[in-house]
Design a protein around this nucleic acid. Structure first.
Lengths: 217, 217
DNA sequence: TGCAAACTTGCACTTAGTGTAACTCGTATG
DNA sequence: CATACGAGTTACACTAAGTGCAAGTTTGCA
């Protein structure tokens, strides 16, 4: 049994460019079936009002299999956030190496502000307000993403990175991104139309602008 | 039964300046007895290797009473972080109203960098690295503190506050404070001597300096 | 003193989470 | 194609988290 949710360097993303085996496809199918069932149930029953049993049943797997993929019902939801935030990395890597870090991160983040990506994330972000469990797991997802970005920056700067500077920057960027997302949800209620999305991008630009130019100005 | 861990505006801090009743004293005593037992057990058995039963037994209360005070074994540890972070508020309120926000927050945070306050916090901060559960609850504690500071700022600015600016600032400040704490632990191993504490203060000054002046400089 | 409210406790119950062993299915090899 | 091996699934059993309820016990107050 090599199925595992925990940080397995070659578990969720096995050989990025290779032909996925049937086994791999099955595993991914099961994983997303569970994650989808979790979304479905949180919508119909509300956060904290569904059990691992129900998710497993809905996804057509045994309770034990559910726990082979996710350590808790909440994490089956948080995986949607993880997946969303994981998309930041390719965008970040695509930025020119000479570009200022804040600019690269702004571009990488605004690139995610499209309907397909945002739908679930915004929904879960709102749901987290009313359920501590979900909030904890989502915060963890953001922290995971932070760590990956820190690693990417350290790679890009190749030893020249000041640890405090990088950790402070990335932590602040993600905190500001959360603030922008929260403010956007408050203002627009999560409307995914073009005008609304443009306002989200503007909020991100404003928030990261504070980081770039300083909060004292 | 009015004992509760959850956000009860007059539960943990009942009538700030009044003479504490005997009931109140008993409750606080029970609360800290449990919290102390949790610290004791995490030290001897390691994070994630002790149960609510054990904590309750060590504190001399029933298992049920444990859960009347804390929703989980981890939260009995996180309360130490909460208490630590709660001390920021008085310091913040003591700052002159005209002072720039970043400066007020820097002063409020550096005021906490003394041995008595830091001992448990630093210890738990380190422990969280190896245990996801603890990490989640600690992140939650930081987020709680953030919310309180945001509320304090909105009160100070009295309606003139830009929600995005404030949320972004406070989130960034706390993220940077965590970065400074993490870097300090890495460098000094949590030594509580005067020289070490001075270096922590300097890390905080540096990190919040980025926020004040911008990360682009 | 005596009553009411606050606090504690034991009990019973649901759910989370995990180890283990049997079972099933994909894959590589002859 | 047969078949053997390893990956993934499942049932079962068990420990621990977390909660409602209905007692008991202590504290505050008239």
């Amino acid at each position: 049994m090599s199925v595992s949710y925990t940080d397995d360097p070659e578990g969720a993303v096995p050989e990025a460019g290779a032909a996925p085996s049937r086994r791999e496809l099955n595993k991914q199918a099961t994983r997303s079936a569970i994650a989808e069932s979790a979304m479905k149930l949180v919508r119909s029953k509300g956060p904290g009002n569904f059990t691992a049993d129900e998710v497993a049943a809905d996804a057509g797997v045994s309770r034990r299999t559910f726990f082979n993929y996710f350590p808790s019902p909440e994490s089956a939801l948080a995986v949607h956030i993880e997946d969303f935030l994981d998309k930041v990395l390719p965008h970040f890597h695509a930025r020119p190496a000479g570009e200022p870090l804040v600019e690269s991160m702004l571009q990488a983040l605004t690139a995610l502000a499209d309907p397909a990506n945002l739908e679930r994330t915004a929904e879960l972000f709102e749901l987290a307000e009313e359920n501590p469990q979900m909030q904890r797991f989502q915060l963890e997802a953001w922290t995971h993403a932070e760590r990956k970005v820190v690693a990417a920056i350290e790679e890009r700067l190749d030893g020249e990175a000041d640890a405090l500077y990088v950790a402070s920057l990335v932590g602040s960027v993600f905190a500001s991104a959360r603030a922008a997302l929260s403010e956007w949800l408050q203002r627009t209620g999560g409307d995914l139309g073009p005008a609304s999305l443009e306002s989200l991008r503007q909020l991100l630009i404003d928030a990261l602008g504070y980081l770039r130019n300083g909060f004292s100005s």
